[in-house]
Design a protein around this nucleic acid. Structure first.
Lengths: 202, 202
DNA sequence: GTCTATAAAATGATAGAC
DNA sequence: GTCTATCATTTTATAGAC
């Protein structure tokens, strides 16, 4: 039973619409975008709220109107995405545990990753794993990743198989330093990564 | 041509012996060990020198006797390891560009990783990629990783092949969240990872 | 080689005006 | 919804005694 904050004094409510309306983003959404970009580029802890505010052309205080803490920026980004992942996990858990289910699971996860900014969010987590162990959002996300891994390979499966399954997920997330050719489109990378991932779970 | 500091006033010299003598480590080495552990666990930026000092039972000032800056701790860890990698790259570059060379390259890199703490160092880099883009050591290491990737696959190779080669290297580094079973030994993991990596470069 | 003490700057966060 | 001003804390780093 979680406490309900009835005395909310700002737009900081639980679930939010985000940037799905295609037009110019509101401040809250712009904060999320800029913050995620800077966090991914330079590191979560290394990026100060001052920096974020400067990039947006506002003051720190303005950020604090939209988010109570620095953590909450990440948490807000994770919230809805986490729900989507949980949905996908629930789907797979209810299906028969066949190879075809695992394949379809990867396909759906690949789709999920390319909705809105989920791909960039996972990239952020990959690049900030150490920081994220100390933050709720990171612990939550890691928990889901392990659940996903459990769906792909049993805990007593041969070690190489387990590694291949980890890599399958990682392949989808990562542009790691795969990105030597800057002309490759997101769509091409997505397709290639899914191809590799599917090959890894055979 | 790099500047030579002739007026060195402390043990901060270029190349050092490190922990290769099996006995109890000197302070400098203990700082390196503890720092790397905390950096990997909690994040580079999130780990303060105060924390490191406390874990060692000394004061911050003592750290500054051994390392001029926080950066220098990482740099000192990277120095000799970087040389080893460069050596390996030079070897591979001189060999004929065959599949067997690439295989042997991975085997040798896997060996390298399990000398001393190289494995833990790469784990640190994997988990702190974002922070490290802002630090010299990180930029250097990333450069070497890209060189390694160039040895494994041409820049105009099909995208899936490129991805598989990235994953091959990553598989060796990573215990990612592969580590669901805590009873698996390092040696087992190493062998399994090499197995997977070799399969990926076919 | 390690300590005490402290400087100088930056950071996350808040109060209150507009 | 954004601003100015400010606080409390922490951080990296240094000076100088022992």
């Amino acid at each position: 039973m979680t406490e309900v904050r009835a005395t909310e004094r700002s737009p900081r409510s639980g679930a939010r619409l985000g940037a799905e309306s295609g037009g110019e983003a509101d401040t809250r959404t712009r904060i999320q975008q800029v913050a995620l970009e800077l966090f991914t580029q330079n590191g979560y802890e290394a990026t100060s709220l001052r920096e974020i505010a400067e990039h947006l052309g506002v003051t720190k205080a303005a950020l604090y109107y939209h988010f109570r803490t620095k953590d909450e920026i990440i948490e807000s980004l994770v919230e809805d995405r986490l729900a989507k992942i949980e949905e996908l996990i629930a789907w797979a858990a209810a299906e028969p545990h066949t190879l075809e289910t695992r394949r379809e699971f990867l396909r759906r996860y690949a789709d999920l990753l390319h909705e809105q900014g989920h791909h960039t969010l996972m990239r952020f987590f990959e690049r900030n794993q150490s920081s994220m162990t100390q933050h709720k959002a990171g612990v939550m996300m890691r928990g889901r990743m392990i659940q996903m891994l459990d769906l792909l390979s049993a805990r007593d499966a041969p070690l190489p198989e387990q590694i291949r399954c980890s890599l399958a997920i990682f392949a989808l997330h990562s542009t790691w330093f795969t990105v030597r050719d800057p002309d490759v489109t997101d769509e091409q990378r997505r397709e290639a990564a899914l191809d590799v991932a599917l090959g890894l779970i055979e």
